[in-house]
Amino acid sequence: MGINFRKETFRDDFTFRNSPEHIRRFPFPFHEDAYMYAVNIEPHVPGPKGSVLEHGIDVDEHYVSEMHDRALVLAEDPLRCQSLPHMTLAGWDLLELLMTSKAESYPEHFTLNRDGDKWHWINRPLGIDDRFTFGDVSTLPYGPMEYITRQSQGDFCILDQRDGNLWMDAGIVTTQADWSLDFDIGMNFFEWHAPVPLAHEKGIFTRALKFLTNIQQGAPARRLNWTMTINPRLDTSPENYHKWGTDRATVTPENVGQKVHLRVELQSFWRLPRSNALVFPIRCYLIKMDELVTSPKWARRFHRVLRDLPTELADYKGLSRYRPTVLEWLSQYDDGAATSPGFGPD
């Protein structure tokens, strides 16, 4: 039994939605009725069957449509995919990681045959059947990172590890929450996180860096991050902010349920074997407010989290303009009852 891939859009007419089964597997990021930064990193071990954590690299019903959206973004703006010259080897590492993971987790959709460095890759959902020589860039239509990430949901940052720091030296970023790869490429861990408020003072990044630089081969880690997006738009890039920024002013009490989305990033961290680099897949999951409130627990809790969020964080996440409207709408689902511990929808 395979995945039933939806045909939908993340722009213009915005036909994206989650099937009922997908709502239940949504990675709701709040384990209690409040939110503050923490070094919430844990081992990336397989989670329950059917959850987004079942496999190391999750593929879901939005796969084919998300890949189509990525192709549109790259055609408009090739600067969204960049790799500094020393990162090609890490690109091959990433290609190996994603191909072997997909083929093992979803054999009905993906097949990889390896005979030494002669590789044969079949991606059935996207209709790809390619033979190439591992390590030889001239045998692929794109560089190794771009080739495989055009076939993988989520943004990918590849971080070179040098001098006790991590350097954002390659990546493909088309579904980002408002940061620019083109501007940040080449920066170190502290520099690209510089605009984040509050967390530096709490020592969050110092501790996180220490943890990340010690991640070892075969022992990946993960964390969740979140923000909100108006309309199910994947490409909320700063590059196009002047085109989508007005969306934020269109929220009304009548359209909150369909227009406002909780956006959760499942970030995972993997040591790459040949290059000793770290890859950081940032997988984005969207859920409409109408879909979210089908879980009474999630509705109550998200209302409380959003209500009590510090102003600096609301500003940084770009929520300030529409937060009051969304809170008013969510309050009808919060009767003040206690919520159960943990992330699940009950």
């Binding site: 020393h86 990162m87 080897l89 590890q161 000793n276």
Partner: peptide, 12 residues
Amino acid sequence: SNPVNLFSLDLR
């Protein structure tokens, strides 16, 4: 143990 690299090449 799994391999660990504390002496990696600087590929730049």
